[in-house]
């Protein structure tokens, strides 16, 4: 910190007094639950119970051997990488577009950012109505322009459902990427482009040699955040499909919910939740490693 810190008699007391409520709440709401969830994962908790006998790692064994887990793991990867890849690509494109000065840019920006602001349940309702097999406007539009010849079962076919959910997720969350990238795009000094113009660089060259290196750290960080959040996203999938049809869109968080609050097997749900968290941890470690390497290269 550039500013020197004040150190007066009594400050230390004040510092701890001001911080302690926050710490207390974080311990009660985060630290204690974390310990509890580990403890629960090693208990056999029967239906309707909140605790049970200690069974060691048996819950983990059962979860890992369960085909439903492997299915959910596969779905999670499709969901995460499908969503994040499209969000990042679309987000970058739109951010570059909005970085250009044009008339009514403010309105365009407001419209494009709105999906991010609206509540998830609102997005889900609207898309449900648009996806409707019989009266949905989406099928009508696509048939009208000749892209499809008969109505698609957006949410009710096992082959389409994941795609549809990703579509809604991307629509809802890509503006986050736009916002993050627009900030950094505006921070690129204009002189660098002017210098490149004088040096005779083409538009593509300017993008590769100036824009991309500049935004790369933020781009990677945004992708990281989106990966984390998409990985443990529950509501949008649950609300769109409930994990179905059958289990076509059951990702790990949805599986945890089903085990815990539909089957009421809290021990098993805890085990699945911890495995989910561990996979996310591995993913993050790999990602951070790659990011450090990318930064070192620059």
């Amino acid at each position: 910190m550039a500013e020197p810190n004040t150190d007066l008699p009594g400050d230390r007391l004040l510092a701890y007094l001001a911080l302690s409520p926050s710490i207390a709440i974080l311990i009660l709401l985060v630290a204690v639950p974390m310990v509890t969830v580990f403890a629960m994962s090693m208990q056999h908790i029967s239906l309707g119970e909140l605790s049970g006998p200690f069974v060691g790692l048996r819950n983990f064994e059962r979860v890992l051997a369960d085909p439903a887990f492997l299915n959910a793991l596969g779905n999670t990867f499709v969901w995460v990488f499908g969503s994040v890849a499209i969000e990042m690509a679309l987000g970058l494109g739109i951010a570059l577009l909005l970085n250009i000065d044009f008339r009514m840019r403010g309105i365009a920006r407001a419209v494009i950012l709105t999906p991010y602001l609206i509540p998830t349940v609102v997005a889900v309702l609207t898309w449900h109505y648009m996806f409707n097999d019989i009266i949905g406007v989406l099928n009508y539009l696509l048939m009208a322009v000749g892209l499809i010849s008969q109505p698609l079962l957006w949410l009710n076919s096992t082959s389409m459902a994941m795609f549809s959910v990703i579509l809604v997720g991307v629509w809802k969350f890509f503006p986050f990427v736009v916002i993050a990238l627009m900030g950094i795009l505006q921070a690129i000094p204009q002189e660098q482009y002017e210098a490149a113009d004088i040096d005779g660089a083409s538009a593509l060259q300017k993008f590769w040699r100036i824009t991309l290196p500049h935004i790369m750290p933020v781009f990677l960080l945004t992708a990281l955040l989106r990966t984390i959040w998409t990985f443990h996203k529950f509501d949008i999938i649950y609300l769109m499909t409930g994990g179905g049809p059958i289990d076509a869109t059951t990702t790990l968080p949805v599986l945890v919910y089903q085990q815990g609050f539909v089957d009421f097997a809290l021990g098993r749900a805890a085990a699945t939740a911890i495995i989910t968290f561990a996979i996310l941890g591995v993913l993050l470690a790999v990602y951070l490693h790659l990011m450090k390497r990318a930064e070192a290269r620059q």
Binding site: L19, S22, I23, L26, L29, V30, V32, P33, M34, T36, V37, M40, L50, S51, I228, F231, H232, F234, L252, P253, V256, Y257, G260, F261, L266, A269, A270, A273, I274, T276, F277, L280
Partner: peptide
């Protein structure tokens, strides 16, 4: 450490916390 932990809290999956919190 406290600063970093607050950031970490913010990354925790809700489905991980919902089980023990439900218990409480």
């Amino acid at each position: 450490t406290v600063s970093m932990l607050t950031l970490l809290c913010y990354m925790l999956p809700e489905v991980l916390l919902v089980i023990p919190l439900y218990l409480f």
